[in-house]
Simulated assay, not measured.
Amino acid sequence: MVTLSAGLSPAALQAIADLEHRVVAADGGRLKLEWNALRHRSGETVEDVLCWDGERLLGFLGVYAHGAPALELAGMVDPAARGRGIGTALLSAGLKLCQEREHSSVLLVVPRPSVAGRSLAERHGGRPDHSEHALEMPGDPVDVPADPRITVRPATEADQPAVRELLRLGFGWEPPESAGHDPNTLVVERDGRPVGTARLHREGDRAGVYGFVVHPDLQGRGIGRDVLHRLCRTARADGATVVHLEVETSNDRALKLYTSLGFQPVITEDYYAF
């Protein structure tokens, strides 16, 4: 039975975690389920699709906004229940939910090894948009000298225009007014002037780096390496055993930077646009 959920109960979250464990054990890699978002659903909007067989969860699909123009869909189907149309039912329901929301496009995240996921996307009219490498750092980062001119601090209300401008320059899309209001948003300053931004969020023993950008005019000067090293050290000091991030497969400069600090590729994910 497919159900739509506005907010997830503790029992539902546990069922999703159990399903994730079964899927990763069978397929390897990882799933982009955005646990921070799942645990903090507002309960005001339907954002998740679940397929149940009694009390056992066989399939899940989440809708994620991330403050970007495109909505993202990511989900999974129990390995023992595949071939029964569950993926089709989940994606159909998810795309219908997206039609009711304001967005520029919808992106379905498909792990590259998943032939069934790629076929599902194509059958529903999805077209390849871009691909990202998921990377993880399971230990301490490689040591990097700290530039005394660079500081990293929490963003304030007064920083919002600068944060949105940095996101626009770095990612090529117009951020919404809410961009930068995440309490985990950080501002990077060089000689007192904002030159970058990032979000650092810890969930349990894992920490994620999101929306990391250095002003294009200042890239290649070691700022990104210095800042990312600081973020990883902060996450480790705060109790995280693993730090993760994503990078577009076409961004060779960033990929080289991340791997030089100790990040290791986990899986490549393809994004299909609808």
Score class of each variant (00 low, 15 high):
Glu44Lys: 14
Gly59Cys: 09
Leu58Ala: 11
Asp78Ser: 13
Pro79Ser: 04
Leu73Met: 13
Asp78Tyr: 11
Glu55Asn: 13
Arg39His: 14
Leu31Gln: 05
Val46Trp: 00
Phe60Ala: 12
Ala68Asn: 13
Phe60Glu: 04
Asn36Ser: 12
Gly43Tyr: 12
Leu50Trp: 03
Glu44Leu: 11
Trp35Leu: 05
Leu73Ala: 09
Asp78Pro: 09
Leu50Phe: 04
Leu57Gln: 06
His66Thr: 05
Gly62Ser: 02
Trp52Asp: 12
Val49Glu: 10
Val49Met: 12
Leu58Asp: 06
Gly75Tyr: 05
Gly75Met: 04
Asp48Gly: 06
Asn36Thr: 13
Leu38Tyr: 02
His40Cys: 02
Ala68Thr: 15
Leu31Ala: 07
Leu38Val: 07
Asp48Ile: 01
Asp53Gln: 10
Ser42Phe: 08
Trp35Thr: 00
Asn36Ile: 00
Ser42Ile: 02
Arg39Gly: 13
Gly62Ala: 04
Leu31Ser: 01
Glu47Phe: 00
Met76Asp: 02
Thr45Lys: 07
Gly62Met: 03
Ala65His: 09
Asp53Ile: 12
Leu31Asn: 03
Arg56Pro: 14
Gly43His: 14
Val46Asn: 05
Val63Phe: 04
Tyr64Ile: 01
Val63Ser: 10
Ala37Thr: 10
Met76Arg: 02
Ala70Cys: 05
Glu34Asn: 07
Gly54His: 11
Gly54Lys: 13
Val77Lys: 09
Pro79Asp: 02
Leu58His: 07
Leu50Cys: 04
Gly43Phe: 11
Lys32Ser: 02
Met76Ser: 06
His40Val: 08
Trp35Val: 01
Val49Gln: 12
Ala68His: 14
Leu71Tyr: 04
Asp48Glu: 13
Glu34Thr: 01
Trp35Ala: 06
Leu58Gly: 11
Ala70Pro: 05
Asn36Leu: 07
Leu33Gln: 01
Gly62Glu: 02
His66Leu: 14
Ala80Val: 15
